[in-house]
């Protein structure tokens, strides 16, 4: 599973970081980015899906392998 944060949509709600701190980084301005170039370890896939469905800006996208 690979995910990315669409920087044009992210406004820093930080819901992804709250739900999956292993998968996302937050900068000083509250904006989110994915770690490990967006590759989600198998054990974190459920958390990645939770992050996707809780983002108020629909900014987290899953993209094909």
């Amino acid at each position: 599973m690979r995910i990315r944060v669409n920087a044009d949509k992210c406004t820093g709600h930080a819901r992804c970081y709250g739900l999956a701190p292993d998968l996302f980084d937050m900068d000083d301005y509250g904006l989110s980015s994915v770690v490990r170039v967006g590759t989600v370890p198998a054990e974190f896939e459920d958390k990645a899906r939770l992050a996707i469905v809780n983002c108020p800006e629909y900014a987290i996208e899953e993209f094909p392998e």
Partner: peptide, 23 residues
């Protein structure tokens, strides 16, 4: 609740700047 895209802190460029503090 597992799916909760709430906008208590607003949405778009004016997302509450203090949301991390509030939480």
């Amino acid at each position: 609740r597992a799916v909760n895209r709430h906008v208590a802190f607003g949405a778009g460029i004016h997302r509450c700047a203090g949301s991390n503090l509030a939480r």
